[in-house]
């Protein structure tokens, strides 16, 4: 098997699982958003990996270049990145509001306050 082979996908899976772990296991809301970011970047990486063609160059047309990488995944991810920052901003805004209302950004403490209050 040639070296890169499936290696990129393994990296993607590992990153994805780290992101998932952060989202599940951490109670801190900002940390959860960071976890979502890690997850998102791994998905971007997956798409870009799929788009790569061996020996191809960046998809900007020019004379003398025959093989280009696939532009379609690039387009999808380009927009996805900008949307991801927008959603991150929205999530962080919610965190700020939660902190204002509950004095904390830890999930457990919020739960407790909900029960007692």
């Amino acid at each position: 098997m040639p070296f890169p082979g499936l290696f990129n996908y393994w990296i993607v899976v590992i990153l994805m699982m780290i992101g998932l772990y952060i989202v599940i296991a951490h109670g801190n809301l900002v940390k959860k958003i960071i976890g979502i970011n890690v997850f998102q970047v791994s998905v971007f990486l997956l798409y870009i990996t799929i788009g790569k063609v061996a020996g191809g160059s960046a998809p900007i047309l020019d004379q003398g270049i025959e093989v280009y990488s696939n532009p379609l995944p690039h387009v999808l991810i380009l927009t996805a990145i900008v949307v991801s920052v927008a959603t991150t901003a929205l999530g962080l805004a919610l965190v700020v509001r939660i902190r204002n209302a509950f004095q904390t950004i830890e999930e457990d403490e919020i739960d407790q306050q909900e029960k007692t209050g």
Partner: peptide
């Protein structure tokens, strides 16, 4: 992996703006 446009965006958005927002 030849995705120059994407890299451009990621560097500007992910490394720049999200960090500022966080």
């Amino acid at each position: 992996m030849d995705a120059v446009d994407v890299a451009f965006t990621e560097a500007a958005v992910g490394a720049g703006l999200s960090t500022v927002l966080m």
